[in-house]
C-alpha cells in the first residue's frame, strides 16, 4: 500500500484493520493527529483526505491506497506555521492542545467548504450562506474541545476568514473596576 501524506510518499504493509489514524500514529511516526475517542465522536483525528476533512479514525488505511492526505504536520511546522495555526496561537484557540490538530485541520477544511458556498444547519438560506459566529460554531461542532476554547477557536477562524473582530456581547460599555 502507498499513500501520499503531506506531499511525501509512504509505502507500508499494515494489518487490514488499521485505521488511517493508526497508520499515521503507530506506523509512520506522525503523531500529530490525535485519538480522542476512536469512534468519530470527537474530531481529534481530523485529517484532510483529497482536500476534505474526515475523521481518520473511522476509515481504513487500506481504503486510501493512493490518496493524498494532509495531516497537521504537513499544514505547517514550528517556524513555518500555516495561517490557521498562527491564528490559534494568537487567539489561544486551545489549552491542553490535544484536540487542536484536529480543530485546525477541520477549520482549514471548513473554510474550503464555505468558499464553495456550502450551507450549514445554521444557515438561514441554503444558497447564500455567509460565515458568522453561529455558522462557524455549527460547522466546527464536530470537534470537541473539553478545555472549551470554543470562543477563541471562533476568533481564530474569523481572523483567517477575514471577518474581523467579533462584536462584544455586553450591552453596556465601561471598564471593570473603573
Amino acid at each position: 500500500m502507498q499513500w501520499t501524506i503531506n506531499g511525501q510518499r509512504y509505502v507500508a504493509e499494515v494489518d487490514v484493520r488499521t485505521s488511517l489514524l493508526d497508520l499515521a500514529r503507530e506506523h509512520l511516526g506522525l503523531t500529530g493527529s490525535k485519538k480522542g475517542c476512536d469512534h468519530g465522536q470527537c474530531g481529534a483525528c481530523t485529517m484532510l483526505v483529497n482536500g476534505r476533512r474526515v475523521n481518520s479514525c473511522l476509515t481504513l488505511a487500506v481504503m486510501h491506497d493512493g490518496d493524498e492526505i494532509m495531516t497537521i504536520e504537513g499544514l505547517g511546522q514550528v517556524g513555518n506555521l500555516h495561517a490557521m495555526q498562527s491564528a490559534f496561537v494568537k487567539h489561544d484557540g486551545y489549552q491542553c492542545g490535544y484536540c487542536t490538530p484536529g480543530q485546525i485541520c477541520s477549520a482549514v477544511g471548513m473554510l474550503d467548504e464555505a468558499k464553495k458556498g456550502w450551507a450549514s444547519h445554521a444557515s438561514a438560506s441554503l444558497t447564500d450562506a455567509e460565515l458568522n459566529d453561529a455558522e462557524i460554531s455549527e460547522r466546527m461542532s464536530g470537534n470537541i474541545c473539553r478545555c472549551a476554547a470554543y470562543p477563541n477557536i471562533v476568533d481564530a477562524i474569523r481572523e483567517v476568514a477575514g471577518l474581523g473582530d467579533r462584536e462584544p456581547v455586553l450591552v453596556a460599555a465601561g471598564e471593570v473596576g473603573a
Binding site: 495531516t71 490559534f88 487542536t100
Partner: peptide, 27 residues
Amino acid sequence: LDRVDGPLKVSGSATYSAEYQIDGLAH
C-alpha cells in the same frame, strides 16, 4: 503573552504520553 508551547501544540509536535517512539513496544 501567547503560550510558549503554542507552536508545538498547533503543529502537532507536542508529544503526549502515548506518542513516544520507543523500540520494541508491545501494544
